[in-house]
Design a protein around this nucleic acid. Sequence first.
RNA 1: GCCUUCGUAGCUCAGUGGAUAGAGCGACCGCCUCCUAAGCGGUAGGUCAGCAGUUCGAUUCUGCUCGAGGGCACCA
Length: 579
Amino acid sequence: MSSATLPTLRQHLTDLLHTALRSVAPEQWDVDILLERPKQASHGDFASSLALQLARRLKMNPRQVAERLVQALPSSPLVEKADIAGAGFINFTLTPSARTAVVSTVFAQGASFGSTPANGRRLQVEFVSANPTGPLHVGHGRGAAYGASLSSLLAFAGYDVSREYYVNDAGRQMDILAVSTWVRYLAIYGEAIPFPPNAYQGDYVFEMAEQIKAAQADQHVRPAAAVMANVPETDDLDERLDAFIVAGKQLLGEGWRAIHQYVLNEQLTDCRADLEEFGVHFDVWFSECSLYDSGEVAHVVDMLAANNHTYEQDGALWFRSIAFGDEKDRVVRRDNGLYTYFASDIAYHLNKFARGFDKLIDVWGADHHGYIARVKGALTATGADASRLDVALVQFVSLFRNGEKASMSTRSGEYVTLRQLRSEVGNDACRFFYMLRKCDQALDFDLDLAKSQSNDNPVYYVQYAHARICSVLAQWTGNVAPLATADLSPLTHEREIALCQRLAEFPELIQSAARDYAPHSLAFYLKDLAADFHGWYNAERVLVDDELTRNARLALALATRQVLQNGLSLLGVSQPESM
RNA sequence: GCCUUCGUAGCUCAGUGGAUAGAGCGACCGCCUCCUAAGCGGUAGGUCAGCAGUUCGAUUCUGCUCGAGGGCACCA
């Protein structure tokens, strides 16, 4: 059985049905022939509902149609029989050699089993893109795990994938972090200023203040009274905070830039290290500032204005978003002359398109969903093809501690960081746990469960299957290479056939998971694969005396290990040889 | 009010235009002189939120109702 046979098994059966169809009902040649893998073993390896689809069009009894189709079915060396069952299903049962052929295929293809050759299509996945204003929290962790697994999956499925992090280094949030650090720094020098309640409160702000003191000494110290002189007495907290920022810029001059640069660099470095430790790598870190420096933001706004897609009102410049399906128009340039985040985001996406990607995938938090219409609208207005942008919305993560929902405010500093989670639960369990929900589903992360009962995490179940196979192999002293061509005919038990079927599903699973941007389905597949293996392992011994049987079972075990490795590595989960 | 994600076993969640809707946890009963018991086998547990429509067939698609989360800034 050649390695090329397996991926086309489904196609082969489809061709057989097509031939039969041309003979039975030539005028229905265009009917879509669907083949599915039945849930029940008694329904064969593949099933088709073609007869049910045709019955009405032919005004015939579905079972009658099925009978004619089966009679017209060409014989195939891969098909043992084609039964008619139920209302008119045609159930194909493969020959034993066709069923076990997947084992040889896995041996032949190894780490690339399940992958698709490069299709030449370039694709960009942008994810995490958290403001560099503090440590990543467990919500970012979900985006990171999802984006990384999705990227790996798409690359495995043949796309040329670029992973990108958009660094919001231009906005007010960075100024708030800088001023937060400065106020803490002043406090160290005894210049006590009431800390703005809406500034960043986390401990890392104190640490950065200490670091700036150590590196730059007292050059940024100004009298508290001088700072407070700039801050109006008002209950508007945002207004007060902005006044602090203005005071900092005025009193410090170049020193403000130094602090701003320092905290940005510090947070970005920390963020990158955090993600790399989590096995999440980015090819490009794209700076929002660079869009301003290059003039791209101004250019895109001018372009929109030149094409009459904007108007001025209340001193601000508005994009006619309604004309492109949004629910209201949106400001691109504020009355104070500054561009909005929206403006730089339009420029950013145009920049992405200009880089030649066939498809852009943005991974956003669910709270950004209202943002999709305006971004796509603006892209359309500039003449870009907005359908080339897909947005994957990842629902929220809620943390539960002692059965109670934990606070998750970045500003207040009361949140569990990704680092804490990783150190308490472990990277593998984290990566896998995040993939146990589809991204549309809100994730309740029970910290107590994840910490105290981490052994219950399904990731260990999957890894354990891998370790068991390694253990069997270690006790067998033979040479692995010849197993590639082992006679597989001794693989006749129900569990062995089921395991082979599961292995054969892997390439299809990769395809559908990539198509649907659904890496979670890979996690569920791996659980199923591990279950099939554990069941077989308990029922049958691999290292039996009979050489033929032993070699066939070793080959099946090794093929299973290969698929576990291929799948786990896509999810960024390690494959320990012993546990 | 509008947009959006959900509603499936006691709990947490998969899944599908098809045949008898699944897993883990929890409960109960079993399995290590034998390749790792972080494992396996079995039992119990369901009005797939509700109503209507499309269809040969709907838990799946469409519409409405009810319930839960999220979003509706000259913040990012």
